[in-house]
Design a binder for these strands. Sequence first.
RNA 1: CGGGGCGUGGCGCAGCCUGGCUAGCGCGCUUGACUGGGGGUCAAGAGGUCGCAGGUUCAAAUCCUGUCGCCCCGACCA
Length: 587
Amino acid sequence: MRWSQTLIPTMKETPEGAEIPSHVLMLRAGLVGQLMAGAYTYLPLGLRALRKAEQIVREEMDQAGAIELLMPALTPINLWQRTGRVEAFGNVLIQFQVRRQNRQVHLALGPTHEEVVTDVVARYVSSYRQLPITLYQIQTKFRNEERPRFGVLRTSEFLMKDAYSFDTSLDGLNASYDKMYHAYCRIFDRCGLDYLAVEAESGPIGGDASHEFMVLAENGEDSVVHCAGCGYAANLERADVGRRDKAPPPSAVTASAPALTKVDTPKAGSIEAVSKLLGCRSSEMIKTLIYSADDKPVAVLIRGDHEANEGKIRRALGAAKVELASPETIEKATGAPVGFAGPVGLKIPVWADWEIASIAAAVVGANAADAHYTGAVRGRDYEVGQFADLRNAGDGDPCPRCREPLALRHAIEVGHVFKLGTKYSEALSARFLDEKEQLHPAIMGCYGIGVNRIIAALIETRHDENGILWPMSLAPYEVLLAPLNVNQQDVMDTANRLYDELTQAGVEVLMDDRDQRPGVKFKDADLIGIPLRVVVGGRSLKDGQLEIKWRWKETAENIPLDGAAIALADMVQSERNLAHATTESPE
RNA sequence: CGGGGCGUGGCGCAGCCUGGCUAGCGCGCUUGACUGGGGGUCAAGAGGUCGCAGGUUCAAAUCCUGUCGCCCCGACCA
């Protein structure tokens, strides 16, 4: 492609509103343009990168035995009603009504396709002989994000690869899951992403096992903990920080324990306010959170500097639904307004995080407005019904496997695999007949990749002050051919010849044939980040030389003009192979 | 949904507090000349409902009210 004939609107300045590197660079390099919050046009250069990512995903899915189909984005609302997900998605589901002749038709744009694919299987699969099967598609998904942000990382419309496996047994599901897991490793390897497969919450979608594929990046929305010692990695919400010995800790009463003292803490209802007022550390305080677990109030004690984890609390209590209690419930349970709850004298069940056990004397709410206790000692002033791991992991917490300190990192979620079970196959009657003529719901797994996020995460992690550093596998073009002076006949003859020869050799070439000063071309070349830059300039041309430079190298080198096309094609080819080589030994 | 910020030629910004003549600057764009290896020089140009609506005023980009849009933080997020 010749630059002058396509549309690559590079920008010298950072557009207002773009902050994170991927967003800034995608706009400046002319990869995308914004239409509105959360919706972007993929301009020619950006589209090429996106298509490459898509193709890698497709190849590895096919390689793993998954079968591609394409389902409609437009779906009937009743499909979502049957699985209860109209409520589960709430405002995220984009739904609307259209008139068709004399009736209203209620539709929704698919935010994901468990329902639709299960319906497909329900219609066409009826025998164990047709299973297992994994179906996938690469398609635009629609979610009404409350707050789209970070450029292309969180948008209300995005390209997703979603795959769904259908098995006849749990062993089968596990095998399908493993195949997808390893395909994901190959995909992200080929894309040149540094990723971590972390243990994750499976979320409201249900199921019992789940991994997220995370790319560590400062601007990532997600938090993961990572152990440098043993490689353990987990979603912050999932990471286990419980004690290994589950015996109840001994009482904290000692002879030297201070007396329980009630102090006035007017208007100080938060940990921060109280610690400031009383001059104590937040780790010496206990947060008493009143939860409503299946509509029954429960007190949960968490160390002041820790964060409660609702998923863990729900599991520990064995409750179906857990949410922070309403102010009325809290007042009824504690006799005090929100912010002054404490375990002393509480009549409702009291659960505590393990870390509470090692606080000798704590500052706690007094269950009275504007008052706290200091010197609250467990076993003397209050009792804990049961201990459990109820909090989020934090920076420096011991690794659950090797006890080395965990590091808290931000990350971008690029993929998610999870085991679904039979939730959808039961709701939508995707059943098969086994060899004994018994009817069973298919056992499902589902596997998603945010294709746009592959691009954004790559740029987020591979750029320098001048622009993007594409790996060969995702680069919109493999070679940037830059004749420095388009008005010089010998330069243009050489460039045109090289362009034809390289293109013929199957190399993807972008030729910067604009009548621009060399400086402009070099700056734009760095900005759009094509891996191999080939400069045709009067200076080296005189010596029968071409200047070539890899985007990620400091310096350029010269190669002889004779046979240059073949040499360049070879270089490109070996760089392509390099990207493939890593796929041979997935993590 | 809570908190904060910003809307002025295609892009980035100044002007607004303290209302006043023809709304400026840089980049980009057009034409011409020179130039030609890291965002060039000179000259001449085109391009603006100052987000929108209402109000105050002799007079509004500037003050007031409302509204729309965009960005950031938080909550939410299969």
